[in-house]
Nucleic acid binder design. Structure first.
Lengths: 152, 152
DNA sequence: GTTGAAAAGTGCTGCGA
DNA sequence: TCGCAGCACTTTTCAAC
């Protein structure tokens, strides 16, 4: 699975990351190959697991989800991790969860409607999970950068 | 701009978040309306800024970016924020940057090839930025949850 | 692996209700 | 405002290079 992707693959990824809906024939023209080649390459990249499909970008603030926060979670024992993850998965407000090194056992990113909603999620959903000792909250006042990794 | 989206809009969002490439006519059949209606609704949601288009999902690990980390940044003065953001924008490894409440001034998510690359980014790129006092690193050992907010 | 064209399916637009 | 139908375009496939 350690096939080295070539320059054409990289250029294709770069163009598609800028605009997924661009027509294959249009991309093909820019890269100097045929539309069929673009199709084959993208299929290969998908089969290799490099491309995982496309996702709709929804603006949370526009549908009433104004508060984004990061939560550092302290577990009583590291061994309780798996059980805690399963319970966190049931909380729809959690959009990302990482098992991390450093002060915290886990790190969560959550999206809520307002600060009242955030408090409810913290008090009534997260802090009642077995093994969760305490949490620390960092509310995002502004998302200054949001992008994908650059290819190469 | 506070138009309340109706049930059809919500169902449409839900289906498209599951699969952006699903055919309009197929979605229309499931929701019991015509393909034209789906088109009009999606156009409206886009114009309202709720839908911001689609994005290609690329698996960072598959192209050699194995390390994901969160960096808490301490600034000397909060007022240096804007200048710091501009310099952070030049660092391609930073994929998210938030201005936060709590212990840190800013919170960054960064994607690197390996721990050596991470050390380089921290020492040679982030800690030399004007106003950055020190940083704290949380390496993600596992991303247990990664999803979008649930509609409703 | 790439090409070029043919075949199948999709999104878009105007008209009618 | 919504639904239907035709047109234009795109993706997909496939034989040949």
């Amino acid at each position: 699975m350690h096939y080295q992707i070539d320059n054409l693959d990289k250029q294709l990824l770069r163009l598609l990351m800028q605009n997924v809906n661009r027509a294959y024939t249009d991309i093909a023209k820019e890269l100097g190959v045929s539309g069929g080649t673009i199709h084959v390459r993208l299929k290969k990249l998908t089969e290799m697991g490099i491309v995982q499909g496309a996702q709709l970008q929804v603006n949370p603030a526009a549908i009433g989800y104004d508060v984004c926060a990061f939560i550092g979670v302290f577990l009583e024992k590291g061994s309780e991790y798996k059980k805690a993850v399963e319970q966190m998965r049931q909380i729809p407000e959690i959009v990302e969860l990482h098992y991390t090194t450093g002060s915290y056992s886990m790190f969560a990113k959550i999206i809520c409607r307002d600060t009242k909603h955030l408090r409810e999620v913290l008090n009534e959903k997260m802090q009642v999970i077995d093994g969760v000792q305490r949490t620390e909250t960092f509310i995002s006042l502004e998302e200054s950068i949001s992008r994908q990794i650059a290819i190469e």
